[in-house]
Design a protein around this nucleic acid. Structure first.
Lengths: 319, 319
DNA sequence: CAATGTATGTTAAACGCTTGACATACTAAT
DNA sequence: ATTAGTATGTCAAGCGTTTAACATACATTG
């Protein structure tokens, strides 16, 4: 592989000049630039990012730590992050902490050892806050400490919209299934709205195990057995909602006629279900754009410690 | 951040010794190791991967290029790759080529500039073969050239199993929908089996646009309009199958009573659909394990240029 | 006792790039 | 004719490791 030296030699300039051309600093005539670019092309030269990183004490890598790579929400997050990162010449180092605080700490150490430009945290363990000083870090749909900027969607509004929608569709007996990504705000918005309309409702909480396996079947089944006839379900994620639909299907409960179901996230899965799932849309693209922006502008802009983006209702065929 | 120098100073040894301890080479007494480890702990020292990479002319990064990050198949691939990689201390650099040959080439250059330990290619463009010499590269569920080792699943067997299954369930009028990830082998296995049993069938091909958007609704709808009553559908991916189910649902066709549907991949989505989708299971874990193994053992083991793993039928409620 | 193996140490080059300091011209404006 | 700006160049240190080469010791073995 050719090095900067070879380029300099071929172009008849010094490596300083080549470096200047690459980084576009100092005075440079068009002619010199031309010569250098020419030489680069002929040699098929690509500067070593590693050497560059060492010299600059910074890489163009961005660490992303997610609690799961199988949950479609994080697939979409990674997709959006990769998109915005690549526009800025940043690369994504994807880490799956698997909801394991120990693993998360190891990943953080690893990312620091790799001198990443920043870390985007989508996990919930607080254990690691202290190891995050002096490093651009942002949490996505999560908030671990006032000292770490957080990008969130308006979860309370989401809970509210879901409840309001189910009520407006005539539901009288609501239940919310709250998955492991326990969002107090979603529950609060839902609860408040139900209470305000004096509708019968309750909230069930999934266990961490159920979240890990993305398997809520038992929980959902028990709901339909134990309780008064439910006619409206708000699931705290589309994945849970999918399973609600499945179980209604098995039990012969028609959706949306007998039971209405609404999810949260608006991942691609939602539109693939039968019936297509009504859900609360998270602006994943925007969330990710803000997250990247927060990392990239770390020193230059004063950090907003908390950014909350609006959500909205997407009505499909399940309500 | 502390450097190897600081550790050496604190431990009262030279940096050579510290380096030896870290890399476990040369003679070392327990006492020295102890001292060095102690010093590392006290300083919370983590060696700079960047410096290490420069010195060794190799990183512990693994490039992965996929055609889409939203397609659940690739989510599972990335999940499995990340898992196997992290066990070996490798990190995943995720690249989304978006089925764009130009982007793919850029990513390959970028990965080379970053001195990755290897590249796992899940894309189909051939354009880049020549730039892959002298670099551990493997293709996953794809084969671009005899000179690049490929890890595949037995697609022809998959097509065969799907057809055989639909036939054994009594279908008389089959259709296969072949998505953009055009796998000739799947078609061949399906076709051969149908022909052998003299069953009426045909194969429709989705356009690239449809694949990109993961939206096959029009195509599927036209099937049910144009043709004799179809009673069995083999979709070349679970995502397509999901949409078949949706459209049957809309058209009031009961599954599996009136139409039987089988997918391919066995991604998580399959078990979340209503009814749960029968499908051909790809051994994603094993495919990925082999892929990583191929990269890691690049120089030591002679490369097998082609590894084909078996698939199997998973029957759920859609057939 | 000599030879061998074990346990350290020192020194310094190498990896490929960035960057600051400084020197030298040429050009154009005052 | 001086000054300021522009366009290059040279030199060398620095980034934080690895690694080869070589020098000492001390402990064991034959």
């Amino acid at each position: 592989m050719p090095t900067i030296k070879d380029v300099a030699l071929k172009a008849g300039v010094t490596i300083t000049t080549v470096s200047r051309v690459m980084n576009n600093r100092g005075y440079l005539s068009e002619k010199t630039k031309e010569k250098v670019h020419q030489a680069m092309q002929e040699l098929d030269y690509h500067p070593s990012e590693v050497a560059r990183s060492l010299a600059q004490k910074q890489t163009t890598l961005l660490g992303v730590i997610v609690p799961s790579l199988l949950h479609p929400y994080y697939s979409e997050v990674i997709n959006a992050l990769e998109h915005h990162a690549s526009i800025l010449g940043l690369k994504l180092l994807v880490c799956n902490a698997q909801r394991n605080a120990q693993k998360e700490r190891e990943y953080i150490d690893m990312l620091k050892a790799n001198k990443v430009a920043g870390i985007i945290l989508c996990t919930q363990s607080h254990s690691s806050v202290r190891s995050l000083v002096n490093l651009p870090v942002v949490t996505l749909e999560r908030s671990i400490s006032p000292s770490v900027p957080a990008i969130l969607c308006d979860n309370e509004m989401g809970g509210h919209l879901a409840a309001k929608h189910l009520l407006s569709r005539g539901c009288k007996n609501l239940v919310m299934i709250n998955g492991g990504r326990s969002s107090e705000e979603r529950v609060r918005g839902f609860t408040r709205t139900c209470e305000e309309s004096s509708t019968f409702f309750h909230v069930v909480q999934a266990s961490k195990r159920q979240f890990n396996q993305l398997d809520y079947a038992d929980l959902i089944n028990s709901l339909f057995i134990e309780n008064h006839p439910i006619d409206g379900v708000f699931a705290s994620s589309d994945v849970i909602a999918a399973q609600v639909i499945q179980i209604c299907h098995k039990r012969g409960l028609r959706i949306p006629d007998e039971v209405k179901v609404i999810g949260f996230d608006d991942v691609d899965l939602a539109r693939l279900l039968s019936p297509a799932l009504s859900t609360i849309h998270q602006p994943i693209e925007e969330l990710c754009a803000w997250a990247i922006q927060t990392i990239v502008g770390w020193d230059t802009t004063k950090q907003q410690s908390r950014i909350v983006l609006p959500v909205n209702l997407i009505q499909r065929s399940s309500t």
